[in-house]
Design a protein around this nucleic acid. Structure first.
Length: 872
RNA sequence: GCGGGCGUGAUGGAAUGGUAGACAUACGGGACUUAAAAUCCCGAGGGUGUACACCCGUGUGGGUUCGAGUCCCACCGCCCGCACCA
């Protein structure tokens, strides 16, 4: 039975109807025993902050289009959804609104789940979980204990970044320009006992494996490479000419041991143990204090001058017998990289040069650039860091830099200082171990117990989970778990004596480092079912924001390796394909007093110069810059409002149109209106076609020019849209669909004027294909159209249409004809015509003859079936 | 400073080294309408010209090529990331 579609399409009725139908048919639920080829699409799961924003809509729409497309292509598509539900905002809400973090979080999840369902995502909701579910975080505790057993977790006294506002420790990655990434407060340094994951154990592998991640953006791979920051160099001992207390030598790290003959000083960090030992000297103590003060205000780092203080100590020059080098404490030497000490070769390092100029130290060039005159070459204001040959360096003279590095490394390896080899080749990484202890309540409890007699005792597996207590209070700063009257007091599992629980919880980045694996067996009693995880992983296509390029992705890569080592899965890389989508941006508006205004309160009038007025008062409004949607600038558009007004399909379509998905998309009223019009246009096309379907369909007659043209367009579009979706080029897929709908509108007009059975047959084909192509993007509309066309079953189960290869190639081709590279005309020739024929046709063009002025061409370049260029 | 990316109509953007501006938005004109909305049709990079047509045009300047938005070099501008990493 076919329905008429003369009414306007009403998403408010149709969308809930199809969402219910998919739900009841369990269309996107993966049942056990599925034999289809697996494909895993995952979008970064949301933090349940309260409401969905447009960025979510864009992110999840992209994933959904791919998931629905792959499903139509016959894959068993895993497309799950969950909640990254631990974290500070819940505690902040608890403090501000006197609501428990748990009820706040689950209420937000309920709201946001409904919002996500309202945009029609093809999600397997049976797999949903939140990281704050006991079922989830208890498995995470199991992972932690397994990793502890494997030596992948350590506990160490370490200096940590302390956020004085959030009263918690921050990872280095969470400190942005010296401030807490969430609170914005200036970060202090504190010494605490911290649990840490030994990410650095995998530094080399995490770096090397980046080369294999071919479906990741180059940008992200580069950022991770830089973050890991590998450098190969030499640890080198400088012997003090006279011991100072316990110190008889200083160990430095250098990547340029080849420049040792140009050394003119040694510098140590203000945090170096020797610096502390020297702080009995007032000048040194003052300098260290000043360095610490500077260290916390790092915004001026590039302007910071290279400052130091002479310690009065000297070291023996390691290759110049009898010579010594002065030892400084310097503000530009970092304690947590290398050994916290360097030797300075001013001629070949800019920082050393700045320092040397300031303190009047010698500048001796020892690397001579190719072609430079050794008698003339000088270093003035700029250090020379390029390649060249070593000179002024005795036994290294004449060697290339790299060769000299090897030779000098061998030289120092063979000598001893303090009964150790003087030099040792070493690889250094910037990558630090990942400190995961957080002094917060709303996180996964770290499952260990502190016992006075037994020390650190892991919670036995049988005692898991360590459940967060619910009766906590937030009326004072610090960790509520620590304040809790009873929770932390336990019996030691080892000796049975009185002991206390660890009250730190895990960094929430731990929660999101393995959730993709949990989705493969979300209800299992173990963290994963390894066989099942291995069959689904890696995630074929992961989609999310560029802001996670380093932290989340690096930690997840570490976690898969750790989970492999602890037997929970057997692969290294979690995400085969990664796509980083752009943000949703919007104009900003300000009234005369400089207050931000919401787009909903602003009326825009068009014309050549757009102007804005306040909707209620008519007062003039200034149209400001285009910014990421944010509450503070009020330039947000509420997805609920859009779904209510236009429907989910319109919002989805707009999110996919126009802008390439990796770039920012600007939300505009005109854009959403345009999408809405297009949705109605498709509905109308289907209705117009239905008007004609009283005429029985016959086999399309390819002799009819209109029929042949539309069929070519239909099949070409089928082929192209599929390819564009595979490549996540949704904006180009959208453009293709626009072209098809324009073509079909014309064909409907032609068919209405002269309906033949053959044309009706071609129209059936064209309209059905259009609906199928639109289905991943506007799934509700497509279902309504499919039903209206009288098709049985749902379009989401109809599979993906195949393009007929015969219709993808034209019998004849139009070749542009250029003269000297400028287009002067065109010739139409049969496809695959011999060059002689093409040349004859091209030269016979009047425009070409005119340009030739009777002469014969110097050359005729013919690219078969592409172009002709006549060179005069 | 180092690394990565980008620069095309009024706007978002298309364009395996091969017809620059697909597709959309905004705009202008027309049809329908009492009117508006919706819908449909037409126009449109800049310039010269009655037309056929021609000239110019992808940030700037060079280069490679039969042919350059695309490749190479230099420069200008914007965006992003990292940033005293020895």
């Amino acid at each position: 039975m076919t329905g008429r579609t003369s009414e306007r399409y009403n998403p408010r009725v149709e969308e809930p109807r199809w969402q219910k139908a998919w739900d009841e048919a369990r269309s996107f639920v993966l049942e056990p025993g599925d034999t289809r080829e697996p494909y895993y699409v995952l979008e970064m799961f949301p933090y349940p902050s309260g409401r969905i924003h447009m960025g979510h809509v864009r992110n999840y729409t992209m994933g959904d289009v791919l998931a629905r497309y792959k499903r139509a292509r016959g894959f068993a598509v895993l497309h799950p959804m969950g909640w990254d539900a631990f974290g500070l905002p819940a505690e902040n809400a608890a403090m501000q609104n006197k609501v428990h973090p748990k009820s706040w979080t689950y209420a937000n999840i309920a709201t946001m789940r409904n919002q996500l369902k309202s945009i029609g995502l093809g999600i397997d909701w049976t797999r949903e979980f939140a990281t704050c579910d006991v079922e989830y975080y208890s498995k995470q505790q199991k992972l932690f204990l397994d990793m502890l057993r494997e030596g992948l977790v350590t506990r160490r006294q370490s200096k940590v970044n302390w956020d004085p506002v959030d009263m918690t420790v921050l990872a280095n990655e969470q400190v942005v320009d010296g401030r807490g990434w969430r609170s914005g407060a200036v970060v202090e340094q504190r010494e605490l006992n911290q649990w840490a994951f030994k990410v650095s154990d995998f530094a080399e592998d995490l770096l090397d494996a980046l080369d294999g991640l071919e479906q990741w953006p180059e940008k992200v791979r580069t950022m991770q490479r830089n973050w890991i920051g590998k450098s190969e160099g030499l640890r080198l001992l400088f012997e003090l000419d006279a011991p100072h207390g316990d110190f008889s030598s200083i160990e430095v790290f250098t990547t340029r041991p080849d420049t040792i003959f140009g050394a003119s000083f040694v510098a140590i960090s203000a945090d170096h143990p020797l610096a502390k030992a020297l702080s009995e000297q007032p000048a040194v103590a003052a300098f260290i204090a000043e360095a610490h003060r500077q260290g916390t205000a790092t915004e001026t780092i590039d302007k910071a001058e290279k400052l130091g203080v002479f310690t009065g100590l000297h070291v023996k020059h390691p290759v110049k017998p009898g010579a010594t080098l002065p030892v400084y404490v310097a503000n530009f030497v970092l304690m947590d990289y290398g050994t916290g000490a360097i030797f300075g070769c001013p001629a070949h390092d800019q920082r050393d040069l700045d320092f040397a100029r300031r303190y009047g130290l010698p500048v001796v060039p020892v690397v001579l650039p190719e072609g430079a005159d050794p008698a003339e070459f000088e270093v003035d204001a700029e250090a020379y860091t390029g390649p060249g040959r070593i000179y002024h360096s005795e036994f290294l003279d004449g060697l290339e830099v790299e060769t000299a590095k090897k030779k000098i490394a061998g030289y120092f390896a063979a000598r001893t200082v303090d009964n150790r080899p003087q030099g040792k080749v070493e690889v250094n990484y910037r990558l630090r171990d990942w400190g995961v202890s957080r002094q917060r309540y709303w996180g996964c409890p770290i499952p260990v117990i502190h016992c006075e007699s037994c020390g650190i005792v892991p919670v036995p597996d049988k005692d898991l989970p360590v459940v967060l207590p619910e009766d906590v209070t937030f009326d004072r700063p610090g960790n509520p778990l620590d304040h809790h009257p009873t929770w932390k007091h336990v019996v030691c599992p080892s000796c049975g004596g009185a002991a206390t629980r660890e009250t730190d919880t895990m960094d929430t980045f731990v929660d999101s480092s393995w959730y993709y694996a949990r989705f493969t067996a979300p209800h299992a009693d173990t963290p994963t079912i390894p066989d099942v995880a291995n069959s689904w992983l890696p995630v074929d296509q992961y989609i999310g924001g560029i802001e996670h390029a380093i932290l989340h992705l690096l930690y997840s890569r570490f976690f898969t390796r750790a989970m492999k080592k602890t037997g929970h899965l057997s692969l290294d890389e979690p995400f085969k394909g990664l796509f980083t989508q752009g943000m949703v941006v919007h104009e900003t508006y300000k009234d005369a007093s400089g207050e931000w205004l919401s787009p909903a309160d602003v009326t825009i009038s068009g014309g050549d110069v757009r102007t804005a007025t306040h909707a209620a008062t008519g007062a003039p409004v200034e149209i400001g810059s285009i910014e990421k949607m944010s509450k503070s600038k009020k330039n947000v558009v509420d997805p609920d409002e859009i779904v209510r007004t236009y429907g989910a399909d319109t919002a989805r379509w707009f999110m996919l149109s126009d802008s390439p998905p990796e770039r920012d998309v600007q939300w505009t009223e005109a854009g959403i209106e345009g999408s809405s019009r297009f949705l109605q246009r498709i509905w109308k096309l289907v209705g117009d076609a239905l008007e004609l379907f009283d005429v029985p369909a016959g086999a399309p007659d390819m002799a009819d020019a209109e029929t042949a043209a539309i069929r070519r367009l239909v099949h070409r579009t089928v082929a192209n849209v599929g390819a564009e979706i595979e490549g996540l080029r949704f904006n180009r897929a959208v453009a293709q669909i626009y072209e098809l709908s324009n073509g079909l509108a014309k064909f409907i007009a032609a068919t209405a004027a002269a309906p033949t059975a053959g044309r009706i047959g071609a129209l059936h084909e064209g309209i059905e294909r259009l609906v199928q192509l639109v289905a991943p993007m506007m799934p509700h509309l497509a279902e309504s159209c499919w039903a209206a066309l009288g098709k049985t079953g749902m379009v989401c189960d109809a599979g993906w249409p195949e393009a007929d290869p015969a219709l993808l190639v034209d019998a004849s081709v139009v070749l542009p004809v250029q003269v000297n590279g400028k287009r002067r005309g065109e010739v139409t020739v049969p496809k695959g015509s011999p060059n002689e024929l093409v040349e004859r046709e091209a030269l016979s063009l009047e425009a070409v003859a005119r340009m030739l002025e009777g002469k014969s061409p110097r050359k005729v370049v013919i690219v078969p079936d592409r172009i002709v260029n006549v060179v005069v």
